[in-house]
């Protein structure tokens, strides 16, 4: 009898305390970690989101930067932390699904509690405006005629820009006849595209508009509003899973976060992404908002992790 009483009070206490924990959440400021340098795209997006996220969650929110190793340093550091919901990282497709499959990092598929996705932009394959190539067929013909002559650039090995060009040229069956020239970041790469040292590059629409460039195909399920004459990769004849590529990103907590806390963070994320202030920010910065809730984002993230392995194989990484 006494034992029973003890157990039941103990259980009640545990339930009460965990409920109290979720009830009380958040009791202190929440840290949003940008795994890249201050001033970069990810950092700016987080700084644009943070004030609205703070308002929605009812607590202070601050952004910190932990750059290095293509985002893997921050992810590796977060992976070992206690899943209390006070530390979240904004991770992109490459940090969460590509890097752990090509590098010996201490995190992997099951290291995270996905909270929400925030943005997703399809990528495009593009050339300089004065390039002789008008269609994907032109490219195939020219590359087959002179194997080893043409060069495609990337912002670094394993980056989204690299995977875009690999998807395009592997899909067209000419990857092995071309040369890959990696740069450090998209800036130097688009300079060389302007100068003519590389002939092809792949990135998002926002970046493509930085220069005098022309798209050849878009890795989206439909054609883009701004480029109605540019075919999708599927139309060009590229098959799944190489035909759709999105530079997506969202908030992740370490695995094992309490469902109640996850739900609170998810709700705050949804409200802040939908806020007028963030909408205006997204509009100015060319961010394509793409919100997914925790359950949906979890399924999406896991599916992406699997399907990206074929891309990684094609890239020879």
């Amino acid at each position: 009898m006494k034992m029973k009483y003890l157990i039941s009070t103990a259980v009640a206490a545990v339930i009460a305390s965990s409920a109290a924990m979720a009830d009380g959440f958040p009791e202190r400021p929440i840290n949003l970690i940008a795994p890249f340098n201050a001033g970069g795209g990810t950092d700016l997006l987080l700084r644009g989101l943070a004030p609205h996220f703070a308002e929605a969650i009812g607590s202070e929110v601050f952004v910190s930067n932990m750059a290095g190793g293509s985002g893997t340093v921050a992810a590796s550091a977060l992976q070992g932390q206690r899943p209390d919901g006070y530390q979240l990282a904004y991770m992109s497709i490459t940090v969460s699904t590509i890097q752990p499959q090509i590098k010996d990092v201490p995190y992997g598929l099951d290291s995270w509690t996905p909270i929400c996705s925030v943005a997703a932009s399809p990528t495009l394959l593009f050339v300089a405006n004065d390039s002789p190539f008008q269609t994907a067929e032109d490219v195939v013909e020219a590359v087959k005629a002179e194997p080893g002559k043409y060069v495609y650039g990337s912002s670094g090995p394993g980056a989204m820009t690299h995977l875009t060009t690999v998807a395009a040229f592997a899909g067209l069956g000419i990857l092995d006849d071309m040369k890959h020239l990696p740069f450090q970041g998209s800036g130097p790469a688009i300079k060389e595209l302007t100068a003519g040292n590389i002939q092809f590059f792949g990135d998002t629409e926002a970046l493509m508009q930085r220069g005098d460039f022309r798209p050849l195909m878009v890795f989206n399920d439909t054609r883009l509003e701004n480029f109605p004459d540019t075919p999708t990769a599927t139309e060009v004849g590229i098959e799944a899973p190489l035909n759709e590529l999105y530079l997506w990103g969202g908030l992740f907590a370490p695995a094992g976060l309490e469902p109640d806390v996850t739900a609170k963070l998810e709700a705050a994320c949804e409200a802040s992404v939908a806020s007028d202030g963030f909408m205006e920010f997204a509009n100015n910065s060319g961010t394509v908002i793409n919100y997914r809730g925790a359950a949906e984002f979890d399924a999406f993230y896991r599916a992406q992790y699997q399907s990206n392995s074929s891309l990684i194989e094609a890239a020879g990484l």
Partner: peptide
């Protein structure tokens, strides 16, 4: 030390 700039290996 760190990532190889061309191949991405550590």
């Amino acid at each position: 030390v760190g990532g190889d700039p061309i191949l991405g290996e550590m």
